[in-house]
Design a protein around this nucleic acid. Structure first.
Lengths: 228, 228
DNA sequence: TCGCCGTGAATCCTATAGGATCTACGATAA
DNA sequence: TTATCGTAGATCCTATAGGATTCACGGCGA
């Protein structure tokens, strides 16, 4: 956020093990190294990461309250199961309430500085060369950053926080895992970004709504083609 | 939630200290026993509650990720400051995106069973006799339950969770602290509930929108009358 | 008077130990 | 074969100890 001010952070961002463990476990869950629904042993994880159980407990408590793990007292933690089709649809319904509105607001408030931010993010969305995992992961990271940026550019921080707390991109990434679809999103992002930059609220709102609907129906629903 | 099924819970809800500490601290923060912005010492709290620091750390990690406390590494936790006027307005803007929609959906989906739930909740909203703290707290509890219930009756659990995670009623309660305003809300709740029960989506949506706007402008804004 | 510095106490962070509870698995009985 | 029971091991939960860092405060110099 304010890290670009200078190369001299007044507080060198102190090192705490719990934060590292948190990030590590989050990545493990995201990449299916810890499979959906699998147990996450406190002592086992502590041995694996070569730390004591205390910071592990702290990290898992955070993950649980964010909905990435679930806890049963005296029985331990589990990685959250994958989103069901119903949960996915509900999640997109929520996003439809929030994000088109955010895109509209961003277009209304656009200025020289925020436009530059938006252009920079779009420039980072490199066209993937193949269909390998690293490309998919990079694209997913851009997708997450793009939507977070728009939530921020809406100017309403409470909305941004509520959106971030869904961790929707993490959940969707887990669904898509080992899949090679979804690259069309960048084109739709460009449409949204252009509408915002030229200050067109109606176009921005509609483009976002369309984008979400395409993402849900044309891309994600294929995941459930022969199941629930 | 499902506690009314029988007097024989298969898992007797095991006892974990971290959960108790969590609830205790949450109450302390809500009631200004721990003042907004005040430090929350891990070891100090452990001594006070006569438990070890380990469960305290777990409870505070949860509270931080829920936005009720903030942490600076190696420096400790603090209770979140009161909502600024700007944050309050942004929070209500968020609620306007979610709750009128939820009220509409609830009206569309209403049935015999959910109508009974709604009536039961309205019956619990006893008219306060005086302006003392206990009455205020009971009213605030009803307010929180009412809005949570509507979020649930929308049928979209992701929306409900996103709403719950704002902890808006806890934050508002802290603002209102030692205040005696806000009893008009029950009347507006009744209007909303009646619209939902008679299956009138438009009326329900509008009543909720009006209710939120009244709450914000006529009641809450008086808190900031001579400050930011 | 004001600001800087050093020391002691308090606090945070991590690791470890041990009791409580749960899980896995094999033995016994129907 | 199937179900029940009991034991061993693993895991969770809590408490405690000690090193690392920060905070509080009094002394020193300008």
């Amino acid at each position: 956020m304010s890290d670009h001010t200078a190369a001299m952070p007044h507080r060198p961002r102190r090192h705490v093990l719990a934060d590292e463990v948190y990030e590590t476990v989050k990545t493990l869950v995201m990449d299916h190294v810890v499979r959906p629904g699998a147990r996450i042993s406190i002592d086992g994880l502590a041995r694996e990461l070569d730390v004591s159980p205390t910071p592990v407990r702290e990290a898992l408590a955070r993950l649980e309250s964010e909905g990435l793990a679930s806890k049963e007292p005296l029985r331990g933690y589990r990685a959250t199961p994958l989103l069901s089709r119903r949960e996915l649809d509900e999640l997109y319904e929520f996003r439809q309430l929030i994000e088109p509105w955010a895109a509209r607001r961003a277009a209304e408030k656009i200025d020289r500085h925020t436009a530059a931010e938006l252009r920079a993010e779009m420039a980072s969305a490199v066209a993937p060369k193949g269909t390998d995992y690293r490309d998919y992961r990079a694209l997913a990271a851009h997708d997450a950053r793009f939507h977070s940026l728009l939530a921020r550019l809406s100017g309403n921080d409470q909305v941004r926080i509520a959106f971030e707390r869904t961790h929707c991109h993490l959940h969707i990434f887990r669904l898509y895992f080992a899949s090679d679809i979804g690259f069309e999103a960048v084109t739709e992002h460009r449409t949204i970004a252009e509408a915002i930059i030229r200050g067109a609220p109606d176009a921005a709102e509609e483009a976002m709504s369309t984008h979400l609907d395409n993402s849900r129906t044309q891309r994600l629903h294929t995941v459930y083609r022969d199941s629930s």
